[in-house]
Nucleic acid binder design. Structure first.
Lengths: 327, 327
DNA sequence: TTGTATGCGTTATCAG
DNA sequence: CTGATAACGCATACAA
């Protein structure tokens, strides 16, 4: 059986209270007793039981993470940073892959409450989860509007969309098409589309946006349709690098030369993307800064130090002008 | 304040014990009281406190996960599946990114013990962590020998290395070079190298292996050296797809035509790789099956149903013969 | 079928 | 400077 405070106390010849005091460096303790207790702890290989501790202090130092899937390098990298920063601040993370499924997200939300997490960072969202409306718990959203009172962290999606579109225009593209996720999901990422449309119109060009199905669906049909309906396309701004990679694949199979005939730019710019497809131009999100801000804001809420603002934080993106947008 | 069993009991007009019984479906309970209790729970929006429950039953249904980083798509995908399967079996996961650092791994190991996790699945390992030697806790390793008593799950690394090497030979390569991680780290992945060497020797070819530094280091120098020292190289078997992508990049910058002049095959075959670099040939690991086996074996240990065998489980790989190994 | 008393391992309060 | 006692929220043995 695992040793508990009482066992340590017995070995050290003191009371459980004293052991607890040594453990938490609380109140005054004699130097001798401190040494005795430390020795006893070492001898028994004692570890304090955080579950009992959590129960008493009513705080777990646990943060719940709800994201679609760690399989996607963007979320993988984001979660890596979140976990890291949280760990540095004494918090642990409970991981949930919602797979974009509303039922799963609801279940996880309940599970996290039962497990008394101190707060939640969520990047998954299927509209209409009323649980977020009455947040009896600190929550921070990443690229997702969860409810009117929940702060959101994201990259500067409008600026990103603007830079991407402007780059294609600057490189001489006229017929430029945008591919985005479902607009019904009201995410800040919709601003990428808005910026694309604004820039196109400003340049007297016609915006055409193809909309993808929700997460997890096979989108190759939509991309095929894009090429069938617009054989003369010169530029594609895909709302993430994975979609961009699918566009590249389809374009190659149709013998479009990239970048001379067709230029492509994506969005995200993960480390994995940089290694696996360095040739793809993209808008790089400041993933580690997003993670930092999210954790910072969540912990502020947990410590009741948050005054309700800012409700929206937009972090600057970085244009990566690589081979797929060469002139 | 969050409602507790006593509050529900008061509203329902019964004793706390009865509420607990309804909650756990234990013993006999009158239909009326059951309804009354359920109503009270709904009215108060009651969620049982799993922390208190865990303390009492001395079980948390928590699994600790220690891996280098979720940023890497292989670990990201593996963790995705592990979390999924665990969730289906009523277990939650606590995520730890050790970044290949021994000090971090030790800290995490202690943290997980303090938090009373029921078991640990670890894919990170820096030699010489004696904590694994006296496992007072169920542990399963993935692609890592942790200690003589800890079971390991991995892909069939030897067969994978064999298939990769044989493919290159079959496609006409003579001068074939292998790139692997540090051999000092005694992982089953070393079998990829062993298989490569065996196959090469069997075909009267000279095996040459370049060794990478440990995780996180910049390996581009090593790859440059490979090309400097072996300009006439015809085939490269990289021990993972990311290394393979770096080889491709360097080869392109030196104007090696792939696959006519140089053929390349990697290892892992994640979903991300399939999307981002479909042209790369690889040995695909059965990631979801590895996850399944690991969780299954861990829970068997937790339930004391494990008899100590098998100590090693090797799951079959799949050769993906794509563009980079075209003849 | 339901209620009372007790303890899971910890910390805070208050007394000594 | 140190110790006894109660409480965190829940589930079990035992009694009614």
């Amino acid at each position: 059986m695992k040793p508990k405070i009482a066992d340590v106390a017995k070995v050290a010849g003191v009371s459980p209270t004293t052991v607890s005091r040594v453990l938490n460096n609380r109140g005054y303790i004699g130097e001798e007793t401190r040494v005795k207790v430390h020795n006893a702890m070492k001898e028994l290989n004692y570890y304090p039981n955080e579950v009992a501790r959590s129960l008493f202090i009513r705080k777990t130092f646990l943060i719940g993470l709800i994201f679609p899937t760690t399989s996607n390098p963007f979320y993988g990298q984001l979660i890596f940073h979140i976990e890291n920063i949280a760990a540095a601040l004494g918090y642990k993370v409970l991981l949930c892959n919602s797979q974009g499924r509303q039922d799963k997200e609801k279940e996880y939300l309940e599970m996290l409450q039962r497990n008394q997490v101190d707060g939640i960072i969520a990047g998954a969202h299927n509209k209409g989860i009323e649980e977020y409306e009455k947040p009896n718990l600190p929550v921070v959203g990443i690229d997702r509007y969860l409810s009117s009172a929940i702060p959101v962290i994201s990259s500067d999606n409008y600026d990103g969309g603007k830079q991407a579109t402007q780059l294609l225009i600057r490189k001489g593209c006229i017929k430029i098409i945008h591919i985005n996720g479902p607009i019904s999901l009201e995410t800040p990422a919709n601003l990428r589309r808005k910026a694309y449309e604004d820039v196109m119109i400003k340049h007297n060009l016609t915006p055409i946006t193809y909309e993808m199905e929700t997460y997890g669906t096979d989108n190759s049909e939509i991309i095929k349709r894009l090429f069938d309906e617009n054989p003369e396309v010169e530029g594609v701004f895909a709302s993430d690098d994975i979609i961009a990679s699918q566009v590249i694949k389809e374009a190659k199979s149709r013998n479009y030369n990239i970048p001379s005939k067709l230029k492509i730019i994506g969005y995200d710019g993960t480390e994995t993307k940089k290694l696996m497809m360095p040739e793809l131009s993209t808008i790089e999100q400041p993933i580690s800064r997003i993670a930092e801000k999210a954790v910072e804001l969540l912990i502020k809420q947990i410590d009741s130090e948050w005054d309700g603002a800012p409700l929206e934080t937009k972090l600057p993106v970085k244009l990566i002008d690589s081979d797929t947008t060469k002139k």
